[in-house]
C-alpha cells in the first residue's frame, strides 16, 4: 500500500517538526492541522457519500462546547471533555441525519446550511454554556502538545478514510454517491450507511473542536458555530479531490499555506487572491488536484484545457 506508506512517513516527519520550528510557525501549524482534520472528516460524508454537508460546523461547535462545558462547569479532565463533545456531536448527527439525509443533492446541502447558525443561536441562550458571553477554559501553554494531539487525530482520521476507501463499507458509500436508487436495489442499506457516514464525520469533527477549544481557551457561540468554517472545509476538500484519501490533505495544507503567505505579503488583498485561486482551480482542475497528477501524466499539460472543453457550454 503506497498510500499507507505516504501517510505514515508524512506523519512521522510532521511529528518531528515542533523541535525545529518557532512559536509563530506552531500557531499556523496547529490551525492548519485542525483544518485538515475538518476537511478530511467532511470528505467522509461529502467526498465519499456525495452528500455536500454544510452542517459540519454544527458538529465542530458541539465538540467545542461539549469539551468546554465539561471542563469549566463540571471540572472534568480534558480527555473526558473530548469524549463528551464527541458523544454530543455523534448523537446530533444521528438525530439530525435521519430526517435530513432523506433529502437529495442541493436540498440536503441547503437544509444543512442553516444548521450551524441555528444551533449557535440556541446555544447562546443556554446559561450552562455561558450564553452569549462564552466560556473561558483553564489556560495551558503547551503548543507542542496541542500540535501532536492534532497531528495524532489527523493520522487516525486519515487512516479511517483509507480504510473506507478500501472496504466494503466504503464501496457502499461510493455506490450511494454515484446512484442512490441503484445502490439500494443492489442491496446497500442506504439509510444506515449515510447516517453512519455522517456520524463518523461528526465524531472526528467534534474531537478537533475539543482540541481547538482547550488550545484557544476562550470560546463563544459565534466563533464555535461559524458557518464560513464549513465553507472552508468544502473548498479545501474539493480543491484537493473529494472522495480520495490524500487529496483533501493536500488541498487543506496547500490552501492553508497559500492563505498564510498571501496574508503576510499583502494583507488586504489576501482574501481577494484566495477567491481568484478558487475560481481558477474550479475552471482548470474541476476534479481536484488529486486528479491533476493522473491527468497530466496521461494527457500532458493539455489536461487543463481539456477540462474546460469537457465542462464548458
Amino acid at each position: 500500500m503506497i498510500r499507507l506508506a505516504i501517510i505514515l512517513v508524512g506523519a512521522a516527519i510532521l511529528a518531528c517538526l515542533p523541535f525545529f520550528t518557532g512559536a509563530v510557525f506552531m500557531q499556523f501549524a496547529i490551525n492548519a492541522l485542525i483544518l485538515a482534520v475538518l476537511t478530511q472528516s467532511w470528505n467522509i460524508i461529502g467526498g465519499f457519500t456525495g452528500y455536500v454537508s454544510f452542517g459540519n460546523s454544527t458538529f465542530y461547535g458541539l465538540g467545542i462546547y461539549g469539551t468546554a462545558v465539561a471542563m469549566v462547569k463540571f471540572s472534568l479532565p480534558f480527555a473526558v471533555g473530548l469524549g463528551c463533545g464527541a458523544v454530543l456531536a455523534v448523537l446530533a448527527a444521528l438525530l439530525i441525519g435521519i430526517p435530513i439525509l432523506r433529502l437529495r443533492g442541493p436540498y440536503f446541502a441547503i437544509a444543512t446550511l442553516g444548521l450551524a447558525a441555528a444551533t449557535g443561536a440556541l446555544v447562546s441562550t443556554i446559561d450552562l454554556a455561558g450564553a452569549n458571553t462564552g466560556l473561558v477554559l483553564p489556560l495551558v501553554r503547551a503548543d507542542t502538545m496541542f500540535y501532536e494531539l492534532a497531528l495524532g487525530l489527523l493520522l487516525v482520521c486519515t487512516l479511517t478514510v483509507l480504510w473506507i476507501a478500501t472496504s466494503r463499507f466504503g464501496a457502499g458509500l461510493v455506490a450511494i454517491r454515484e446512484d442512490e436508487d441503484a445502490a439500494a436495489t443492489m442491496g446497500v442499506n442506504t439509510t444506515a450507511y449515510k447516517v453512519i457516514a455522517l456520524m463518523m464525520s461528526a465524531f472526528f469533527t467534534a474531537i478537533a473542536g475539543g482540541i481547538y477549544a482547550y488550545w484557544i481557551s476562550f470560546i463563544d457561540p459565534s466563533s464555535a458555530f461559524d458557518p464560513t468554517l464549513n465553507v472552508r472545509m468544502v473548498i479545501m476538500a474539493v480543491f484537493g479531490g473529494p472522495g480520495t484519501v490524500l487529496g483533501p490533505l493536500a488541498g487543506s495544507f496547500i490552501l492553508s499555506a497559500v492563505y498564510e503567505v498571501l496574508s503576510s505579503w499583502i494583507s488586504t488583498a489576501a482574501a481577494l487572491l484566495f477567491g481568484i485561486v478558487i475560481v481558477l482551480a474550479v475552471i482548470f482542475t474541476p476534479r481536484g488536484i488529486a486528479d491533476v497528477l493522473v491527468g497530466v501524466r496521461r494527457h500532458g499539460w493539455r489536461y487543463l484545457t481539456r477540462n474546460i472543453r469537457e465542462n464548458r457550454l
Binding site: R168, A171, G172, V174, A175, R177, E178, D179, D181, A182, A183, M186, G187, V188
Partner: peptide
C-alpha cells in the same frame, strides 16, 4: 443506472458485495 464514475469492475463488485 451504472455508477458513472466507477470502472466496470467496481460497478459489478458492488453487486457482488451487497447482493443475495
Amino acid at each position: 443506472k451504472p455508477f458513472p464514475g466507477l470502472s466496470t469492475l467496481d460497478n459489478v463488485a458492488v453487486g457482488a458485495m451487497f447482493g443475495t
